[in-house]
Design a protein around this nucleic acid. Structure first.
Length: 312
DNA sequence: CTATAAACCTGCTGGC
DNA sequence: TGCCAGCAGGTTTATA
């Protein structure tokens, strides 16, 4: 679920809170979460590096580190980046006591001091499934949590950013994303619109939620062929993509299920979706009931009233 | 190139 | 209540 708006929202929060901080050490609790280099080298290389800048590219969160390093995080399905304040400690005793539970849940957390009372240990729901921890020099910790373990954290030399991003397409909220560039990339594909929007090489950062929302905004059927659109339709699609993503960022992202921001808060955009998971509800534009279909093995939501399959 | 399936994982929901 | 099948926002890799 972290798609472009969710990653962008987290990136803005990180930029405001950790730029200038130093990463003392990194702990890895599930080694396969580290995609590059191997976990031992990762730990060694990242130690004592300073966070110089925070950026986003597509669904990737990018941290420029001192030492000419680039830390890239992709949250895939259920990954989250959370900031743990000072005063909390991490209990890894489960690793030996119950390896199976450890593998699933990761470490537990307990509070060592509390500004309000002498409440002793407590446990935070949001910090379960912690797969990696970056210990900052000021006592704070950046946690990467991910129940399904699909997320990936990688460390690259900065000049290898292109390799790390694996040929991502244009940023939909940048000036390089124009009606003309969209027309060109659609014309050279022969697939359905839904598939094209999900293809990170066509446009960076759109996932299942915003693909459906953008197609609804443009009143285009998910099964339309990419090479069948008129110029007017491409203009509507371009406008729809930009509008849907921009609005979602303003709402703090869509928390259908797992997404949380840096402080563990859910986003509000789920209250503003028009078709995603709205099966059986009346379309806000024409009143027809929203339906669901499978396109390229992906759940797809649309309004059969105002997203008709024409122009073929 | 396009298409399809499977793999990587765990939690949740719905049906029986 | 309990169990099991099926499903979930993403990407990569293998196979046709």
């Amino acid at each position: 679920m972290p798609e472009l708006p969710e990653v962008e929202y987290t990136a803005r929060q990180l930029r405001a809170s950790v730029v200038g901080a130093e990463i003392d050490t990194a702990e890895i609790y599930w080694e396969r979460i580290v995609g590059h280099p191997d976990p031992a080298d990762f730990r060694a290389e990242i130690a004592a590096q300073r966070i110089e800048a925070v950026r986003r590219r597509g669904k990737y969160l990018l941290l420029d580190l001192s030492g000419n390093l680039l830390l890239s995080i992709h949250r895939r399905m259920t990954g989250n980046f959370l900031l743990l304040p000072p005063g909390w400690e991490i209990d890894t005793s489960l690793r030996e006591q119950d390896p199976q539970s450890w593998s699933t849940r990761g470490p537990t957390f307990y509070q060592t001091h509390n500004t309000h009372s002498n409440q002793e240990s407590s446990y935070s729901h949001e910090w379960r499934y912690c797969r990696a921890c970056f210990n900052l020099g000021d006592g704070r910790r950046l946690l990467f949590t991910d129940p399904r373990k699909f997320g990936r954290i990688e460390l690259w030399p900065r000049e290898q950013e292109e390799t790390a991003l694996h040929g991502l397409g244009p940023e939909p909220l940048s000036e390089s994303f124009t009606v003309e560039s969209l027309a060109r990339s659609l014309a050279q594909r022969k697939t359905t619109l839904k598939q094209a929007l999900l293809d990170q090489n066509v446009i960076a950062g759109i996932g299942n939620i915003y693909a459906d929302e953008a197609l609804f905004a443009a009143a285009l059927h998910p099964l339309r062929r990419t090479d069948s659109l008129t110029l007017a339709e491409i203009q509507k699609l371009h406008k729809g993509i930009v509008a849907v993503l921009t609005l979602a960022i303003e709402h703090g992202g869509t928390s259908f299920n797992d997404y949380r921001d840096l402080w563990g808060e859910a986003g509000d955009n789920y209250n503003h979706v028009r078709v995603y998971h709205q099966v059986g509800k009346p379309c806000v534009r024409c009143g027809t009931l929203i339906e669901r279909m499978i396109v390229a093995q992906r759940s797809t939501h649309y309004c059969p009233g105002c997203q008709q399959l024409t122009g073929e």
